[in-house]
Design a protein around this nucleic acid. Structure first.
Length: 423
RNA sequence: GGAGAAAUGGCAGAGUGGUCGAAUGCACCGGUCUUGAAAACCGGCGAGGGUCACACCUCCGGGGGUUCGAAUCCCUCUUUCUCCGCCA
């Protein structure tokens, strides 16, 4: 969530930049500022009432000590009255704070100035493209056909065990997926990211910290008996490592990577674009995450983008990078780059990574701060990205590396798989 | 799952109804001393709100209650530890 002080001090700029998301935020922003003013006025009133009551209570204490019980008892009526006043003020204040917060939860992050305006993914700006699209024969198959042909992924079996969107990987398919996970983690740790294994279920506070709650609980599987949520991404547990934390300035930057399965309810559509591995309820992902000094976060974003590029280059997959437009930008993000791999057999781009700078938007909720050189506590910037989402990378490999003899394994993966062909 | 104990500042650890946001030690930061370092000594050192800055308010695991007044008493929840049971 945005900080009220920031909204107050940058009102026009905030409205202008939120307009990139195709929303007119002026009403919300004005209301937030008004609510905040009212909140502060109530707070001051309440504080004064309490201050008076406190000082009388101290007097009473002294009077009792001196044996002046009668005078003390007289003062008691005064504090009783003040207490009632305070109670009412406190209730007003609480509802005011609640109203303000509910409003603030609804305001998305302020897009960076370089975010292109636009409504849909059509308006995303392609900023980079690399890799050759292989020329495949007429008989080239989409990955779900290949999965069947080589018996490496069984979608029907997953449906039997659980339901649609829970595939079963098998034999060399399972091994290839495990190889990818290990390869990604190795690349990330080599680049200085510390590997974490985090819980796959999180509590409400964590869901709130990263912004899934209160509004987007529909996207997560909810274990009601224990009030826990299955993680939709490692971002949730990994970012919450740092909830309620005050770091030293020289602790920054912090770089974390982790592999987790991800669970998404995705009340989604049906058809070709969700077939096979394209969209699942359960999938694997390796995530990278950074906690940065505000002055360094965009530098960090660039370095994360470069890092992901390096991996795709090694895998020799054709990909492009998009700078998301305001309309496509996630609620919590200030700037996002999406990576898409070209799926030759499907003739379409598949999103395999999304790298974002959240600036202080998450840190504000998380209360993730560092002590700056003035000794003041300041919000950190958080960033994260996938490196990478497994199913679509797998789809890309299967489709782009298919030959008449079978599916070749990218050279960098062979040491991890132990085989160089799926046939 | 059953029985008991506990939860206080970065850590350790006092405080059991009044001037306690909280002793003390360690850690940390600044200074003196030193060729330099260590030691010693001096000073500083939790968070949030509020203010131009003060004042002031709130916070001793969370929530509620008793009282003029709660870290301290009561209720409740959570977590941790010990013992027993079960178990990958």
């Amino acid at each position: 969530m945005l900080q009220v002080a920031f909204i107050r001090e940058n009102k026009e700029d905030v409205i202008q930049r939120l307009a990139k998301r195709n929303i007119d935020a002026s009403a919300m922003i004005n209301e937030a500022i008004t609510l905040d003013e009212e909140r502060r006025a109530l707070q001051a009133k309440l504080d004064n009432t309490k201050a008076e009551s406190n000082s009388i209570s101290k007097e009473i204490g002294i009077l009792f000590k001196n044996g002046q019980a009668q005078e003390a008892n007289e003062l008691k009526t005064k504090t009783t009255q003040l207490k009632e006043e305070a109670k009412i003020l406190e209730q007003d204040l609480n509802t005011k704070v609640e109203t303000l917060n509910e409003l603030l939860y609804k305001i998305p992050n302020v897009p960076n100035t370089i975010v292109p305006s636009g409504n849909t993914d059509e308006d995303n700006e392609e900023v980079f493209r690399e890799g050759e699209v292989p020329s495949l024969s007429e008989s080239a198959l989409p990955h779900w056909e290949l999965a069947k042909k080589y018996d490496i992924i069984d979608f029907e079996l997953g449906t039997k065990i659980t339901g649609a969107g829970f595939p079963v990987y098998k034999g060399k398919g399972a091994k290839l997926q495990r190889a990818l996970i290990t390869y990604f983690l190795d690349k990330n740790t080599e680049a200085g990211y510390t590997e974490y294994q985090v819980p796959h279920l999180v509590n409400e506070a964590s869901g709130f910290g990263t912004g899934q709650l209160p509004d987007k609980e529909g996207q997560m599987y909810h274990v009601t008996a224990d009030n826990l949520y299955l993680i939709p991404t490692a971002e949730v547990p990994a970012t919450n490592i740092f909830r309620d934390t005050i770091l030293n300035e020289n602790d920054l930057p912090i770089s974390v990577t982790g592999y987790t399965p991800c669970f998404r309810r995705e009340a989604g559509s049906y058809g070709a674009h969700v077939r096979g591995l394209n969209r699942l309820h359960q999938f694997d992902k390796v995530e990278i995450l950074r906690v940065e000094h505000p002055n360094k976060s965009y530098e960090a974003l660039d370095s994360m983008v470069e890092h992901v590029k390096g991996i795709l280059k090694e895998l020799k997959l054709p990909y492009r990078i998009l700078r998301l437009c305001g309309g496509d930008l996630g609620f919590t993000s200030a700037l996002t780059y999406d990576f898409e791999v070209f799926s030759t057999a499907q003739d379409r781009w598949l999103e395999i990574s999304s790298v974002s700078n959240f600036e202080t938007f998450q840190a504000n909720r998380l209360k993730l701060r560092f002590k700056n050189s003035d000794g003041k506590n300041e919000l950190c910037h958080t960033l994260n990205g996938s490196s990478l989402a497994l199913p679509r990378v797998l789809a890309g490999i299967l489709e782009n590396y298919q030959t008449e003899n079978g599916i070749k394994i990218p050279d960098v993966l062979v040491p991890y798989t132990g085989f160089d062909l799926i046939s």
